[in-house]
Write a protein that binds this DNA or RNA. Structure first.
Length: 330
DNA sequence: TCAGCAAGCCGCCAAT
DNA sequence: ATATTGGCGGCTTGCT
């Protein structure tokens, strides 16, 4: 049984964001060992040629009726952010949500979700360029322009453009586990996982000498993740003083060095929880925590549940019904 | 649960 | 003069 993904597009659609969805969910993935995969339907209010940004047209294959049958509905962009969203689209989204579908927006797609009222009182992400407009139009939505995406369980919203990849991979991770998501990421040739709370802003987008040394030290840390690493040693590997490393790290990663490392350790433990029978104690040690208690603590901080709880979620193979594991509520 | 110790983090400032 | 660095001290956090 395929999991149906309906993508809602409009005249003036954004081909890049649409392409992300197709790439992650819409292609056959014979190399992945999964009980089920996704089936994408590109939907629009009316089936007619739609202009895409960049000077070409796309003809959607489906009308809005597909939205009603979808397990997941994705709105990759909304080209006219300040104009009202077509009532039929709003109705279709509301109906899908009531029927239990997971709603996802990328970039300005958040305007469409907000128009349904379902975002009221919830935290939501969008492209930083649209944040103030979204806030102005829908004051009840708690817009957070600083994060890559927000997983609020049944509704996910995400930042702009390339950041659309992150929630999509996150969904794959929730549905199929970290191992599968990592495989897919490798196929797409992108970083395996960026957490939702990672910042949208990278202060130094240009790869300069600092970034190079930082990256080098991070690579080193990741390949020695099982060993105890102190800030001093970390800094040494980056050819900086601890003080400077902390500073550079804050600018580039928006997170202190050791905090980042702890998160990497939790990430590294996920495949072990899923695919091994190692005890929590052993897994903790395998990814560099000195004690299982510390591991549990960091785990809960980032994933809002215990390692054992996480393992049980993915234990039963094909545990498909699970929707929206909330890793970022509150 | 608590005390005490070690480490990380970050504002501040002096030195380069 | 301005920017970057890195050391100091105080506060917080985690571990025993």
């Amino acid at each position: 049984v395929a999991h149906k993904v309906a993508v809602v597009v409009f005249d003036g659609l954004a081909p890049f964001e649409l392409g992300i969805v197709i790439e992650v969910f819409g292609l056959p993935r014979d190399d992945l060992v999964v009980p089920w995969w996704y089936e994408v339907a590109v939907c629009a209010e009316r089936i007619r040629p739609l202009a895409a940004v960049g000077g070409f047209t796309i003809v959607p294959a489906h009308g809005l009726s597909e939205v009603a049958h979808a397990d997941t509905v994705i709105v990759p962009a909304w080209p006219r952010s300040l104009e009202p969203v077509p009532p039929k689209v709003v109705a279709a989204l509301r109906a899908a949500h009531t029927a239990g579908a997971r709603l996802v927006s990328i970039c300005s797609g958040a305007f469409v979700l907000a128009a349904t009222g379902l975002l009221d009182g919830r935290r939501a992400a969008t492209h930083w360029r649209y944040a103030s407009a979204l806030r102005g139009l829908y004051p009840a939505v708690r817009v957070d322009e600083k994060v890559l995406y927000v997983d609020d369980g049944d509704i996910l919203t995400s930042a702009g453009s390339a950041a659309g990849l992150d929630p999509c991979l996150h969904i794959v991770r929730c549905d199929h586990g970290a191992e599968v998501a990592n495989h897919l990421a490798r196929r797409l040739v992108i970083a395996p996982h960026r957490a939702g709370d990672q910042a949208q802003f990278i202060e130094r987008p240009v790869v300069d000498a600092h970034d190079q040394r930082l990256r080098q030290a991070m690579d080193w840390a990741l390949s020695h993740i099982a060993e105890p690493i102190t800030l001093t040693e970390f800094a040494h590997r980056a050819f900086m003083s601890p003080r400077t490393l902390t500073r550079r790290f804050g600018e580039a990663v928006r997170e202190p060095p050791i905090a980042w490392l702890m998160r990497q350790r939790v990430d590294a433990s996920l495949p072990l929880l899923e695919n091994s029978d190692l005890g929590i104690e052993q897994i903790a040690r395998a990814v560099g925590f000195s004690t299982a208690a510390g591991y549990r603590k960091y785990f809960r901080r980032h994933l809002s549940r215990s390692p054992t709880g996480y393992r049980q979620t993915y234990r039963a193979p094909g545990a498909a019904g699970l929707r929206g594991i909330s890793i970022m509520t509150g």
